[in-house]
Amino acid sequence: MDEEYDVIVLGTGLTECILSGIMSVNGKKVLHMDRNPYYGGESSSITPLEELYKRFQLLEGPPESMGRGRDWNVDLIPKFLMANGQLVKMLLYTEVTRYLDFKVVEGSFVYKGGKIYKVPSTETEALASNLMGMFEKRRFRKFLVFVANFDENDPKTFEGVDPQTTSMRDVYRKFDLGQDVIDFTGHALALYRTDDYLDQPCLETVNRIKLYSESLARYGKSPYLYPLYGLGELPQGFARLSAIYGGTYMLNKPVDDIIMENGKVVGVKSEGEVARCKQLICDPSYIPDRVRKAGQVIRIICILSHPIKNTNDANSCQIIIPQNQVNRKSDIYVCMISYAHNVAAQGKYIAIASTTVETTDPEKEVEPALELLEPIDQKFVAISDLYEPIDDGCESQVFCSCSYDATTHFETTCNDIKDIYKRMAGTAFDFENMKRKQNDVFGEAEQ
């Protein structure tokens, strides 16, 4: 370990593993360490099931009705991949897709007046949907046509809207959309967690709705994908990429100290040895004095023996409960997957309800979601602090990732990755940087 590296990475969460992969592909010498004996950090999948019970201090362990412990891979952080989103792009560019198998999530649902409705995925579904009345549908269709044709580089498509100054509230007004449709559009399509976006320039919202539609167009059922064997497969896929390009991995490796000289990182000390480096990437748990708390998320993992009611017996789905429907500031989400994804025993389902904490009784906040899941065989409640770095790391060369937020997709995580890359490399992130180099010394032969 007593060696000189360009970059040392602490923690094998998804953000850290993707950055480690990119740095290795770009010719950097990388050492990647984790104090845990497993990959994934906060974003790991726990197996066998006995391990999950232990982690949540349920000492009696799983009953026999849960089947074989080894058949379970339970995500600690519930997220899906947008089919046309940035993480899929990263997987394709790096060819990490060859280590993973994905399934399309069967449906996306939205909560309205105590019931759940399928988010329409085709024009026919939209016309048949009970989510809105006849005239509302016509106006909504006009709005969707506007979004589909919108091109930020072609003012002819703006229809009198200025993407940089017109607020989204004004765009909704222009198409005369009612409150329910606005809730549905902002939260189930643009996937905002709160209503803060309404008074911001509309460009980002329009682009988010386009991303949803384009992702949906790829597979038809929903815009989301999920990897077989759980999300823990993602960091491992990128760790393989890093290793192929010469990255060194050490799990179960305690970090005793991060060594600084004149305010700059110069190395990491572990078990009496020092590895030197020019730059350091880590998750917040490794540098508690360089991060601040930015809120909390509650996630309740529920094991069920039945599909969720009114989802047409889907073996995977997402449910969004827009905040307006339950008098909150932030949406509540449910991600459900099952034995069909090799993450649970035969006939079992895993539904994870999550939201940003707003009160001193977080469990009560998630109740509307839990009511949709009854009866629940077993619950595991996790309340996590969200951390963000206190500075950009440019001076110390210590670059810290943000905690995983309450969103049900990876777009915010990818933004964090691109942002850290830019601060480390001094140049904007470009997907081309992730391409495997042809015929290089570490390149794998085609399968």
Score class of each variant (00 low, 15 high):
Y197L: 15
T47I: 07
M82R: 03
L370C: 05
S384L: 04
S330Y: 05
K269C: 14
G41H: 14
L373C: 00
R138T: 04
L373G: 13
L10A: 04
F150S: 05
T165S: 12
G263R: 09
R436D: 15
N312D: 09
Y249N: 10
A148I: 14
P62S: 09
Y53D: 01
R276C: 08
E411W: 15
G443E: 10
A128Y: 15
M434R: 01
T360M: 10
E214G: 09
N324K: 00
Y224V: 04
K329Q: 05
F56V: 13
P227S: 05
S108G: 09
A445W: 15
G267P: 09
D361E: 02
G393N: 01
S65R: 04
C402S: 12
K79E: 03
P155N: 09
E271V: 03
V105Y: 01
L251V: 12
K435L: 13
Q378R: 12
V30I: 13
D331N: 08
A382P: 00
S108E: 15
M134L: 15
T359M: 04
E411D: 03
S215P: 03
E367L: 12
V88S: 15
S129A: 00
C394A: 04
K156M: 07
V255E: 04
N439M: 15
S167E: 04
R436H: 07
P48I: 08
L280P: 02
Y172E: 11
I417T: 08
K137W: 00
D392I: 12
E16C: 02
E204A: 00
L59M: 05
S270A: 12
E444N: 00
Y249S: 01
Y404L: 07
I321F: 10
N207T: 12
E358N: 08
Q164K: 00
G347L: 03
A275S: 05
P62T: 00
A188N: 15
T166N: 00
I182A: 14
P307T: 08
N315G: 09
K364E: 11
T15Q: 01
D151Y: 03
T15Y: 14
G426R: 05
S121L: 08
S108N: 09
K253S: 01
E444D: 10
G237V: 04
G443D: 14
G114D: 09
G220S: 06
L370G: 04
F184C: 06
R98G: 04
L373A: 04
K435S: 13
N26D: 07
C302Y: 07
K29M: 02
D377G: 08
T408N: 05
R423H: 08
L241D: 08
Q200W: 11
C394S: 11
D385V: 13
V326A: 11
T408S: 07
C282Y: 03
F140V: 06
L144F: 12
E273M: 03
V297R: 03
T122I: 11
V297G: 01
S129F: 03
E271T: 02
I18R: 14
E42D: 08
A188G: 07
K156E: 10
Y38C: 10
S215A: 01
E136A: 11
S222D: 15
L234M: 00
P284Q: 15
G295A: 11
P235A: 11
N73V: 01
K54S: 13
R138W: 08
P254Q: 14
L234F: 11
M66L: 12
E271N: 12
A445L: 01
V104M: 07
D6E: 05
S354T: 12
